[in-house]
Design a binder for these strands. Structure first.
Lengths: 223, 223
DNA sequence: CTGTATCCGTGTTGATACTG
DNA sequence: CAGTATCAACACGGATACAG
């Protein structure tokens, strides 16, 4: 019925500059945020939608098609018994993480940045990777629970290891919304308040949380 | 006549993620390329236009207004006797250079990247900063002449210093189109051929050019 | 020369409804 | 759940015309 894909990309920059070509690859609206959501592993279409409120289904389809055509995203089917379609970054797509980090680090200094808006779980983990300061690091082992999604974060020898799925032997487990965890770790909300409001539940060693949080700080505003 | 500036920015992401906010700041088409052109110092409206073919005057006006409203660009008037209006990056705007570099470095690995397209002078200098490899650096002092624009590049003690205006005591001066210089330095064109075609004119020590070029290499394709 | 203000055709974006 | 179809609004780019 719809065999011919016209695949017109008439909006080019015609510029040999790598930056300009990068914008042709991931400069379309939502494209980089879709990649952000895939940075920690494959996701389903519906999971992407719920992590990106405001992105409609047809646009998500277009972005995934475009990213797949560019060799950044691969459409896969999970092995049985799951057998569901998922979208995954290719190796090269994964290499875009430094771009996301630099952009986030820089924009966090914006006077117009509102850190109280909703935050996806992947965004939180990537922001931890971005804002981690090895000079302030103390060993700590934390897990996070966001609904059915679980993540681990480990500080060891001045390095941060983080990702999807729980880790071994966490010293503390934090459960709540990603935004509340951000408030806790970046220090613009107090743990006592967050627990009293029911925004966060904490299990285990609170000292480990304090040690962990000490390594993370938001940069000052540029103004 | 048109006093009310509606200034609608209805296309937001509503996401606390710094990356998303960054896209709201510089994610519009052409915005990052306008900033790229300002990275090496203030420019005039017409200079920006000629460096960015395909960008129409009305869109350039919109971008400059938006970037100024975000605190990234400042409109200034050069002191007499010049007394001409120019656009300059603010300090915070200047801090976006790592984003441009990471994006360029990453996109240079794209199979679809065509390095033979036209290239602006600023793009060339920024690409040198991006691709410079301290491990291969040998001292060299080069100046570049692109029409009326002149730039300097110095490798000293494993570091690259580059910018607008000629430097002191260059060992060699290269004159031509930025794209031809890119071909020379990145090694996909031979100096002899470029000179024979009239694409490049070289004055001074050719050995310095070879020493300089040895520190720059384009990354391999991802594919 | 440095913009600003229009109109206009096209393409992109996004919300809603809908199908398998 | 995973998309597709349709339609409306907007952004983009070209071409002016115009003001200082």
């Amino acid at each position: 019925m719809k065999l011919e894909k016209v695949t017109k990309k008439p909006r080019r920059y015609d510029d040999a500059c790598g930056t300009a070509h990068g914008l042709e690859l991931i400069g379309e609206r939502w494209a980089l945020l879709v990649m952000r959501e895939l940075m920690l592993g494959p996701r389903r279409f519906g999971d992407l939608r719920s992590s990106l409120p405001g992105l409609s289904a047809n646009v998500l389809t277009q972005r995934l098609e475009g990213l797949e055509a560019s060799g950044l995203v691969r459409r896969e089917t999970l092995p049985p018994p799951a057998s569901v379609p998922v979208y995954a970054l290719t190796g090269w797509g994964l290499e875009a993480e430094p771009i996301i980090r630099e952009l986030g680090r820089w924009a966090a200094r914006s006077p117009g940045h509102d850190p109280t808006l909703p935050l996806s779980a992947v965004s939180l983990i990537l922001s931890l990777r971005t804002m981690f300061d090895p000079a302030r690091a103390h060993d700590a082992a934390l897990d996070f629970v966001f609904g059915r999604d679980r993540f681990h974060a480990r500080v060891r020898d001045g390095a941060l290891i983080s990702g999807r799925d729980p880790g071994a032997a966490p010293e503390a487990v934090i459960e709540g919304e990603p935004g509340a965890v951000a408030g806790l770790i970046y220090g613009f909300a107090a743990l006592d308040d967050l627990e009293r409001d029911g925004a966060l539940k904490v299990f285990g060693d609170r000292g480990a949380i304090a040690r962990f949080a000490a390594a993370f700080e938001l940069p000052g505003k540029a103004a």
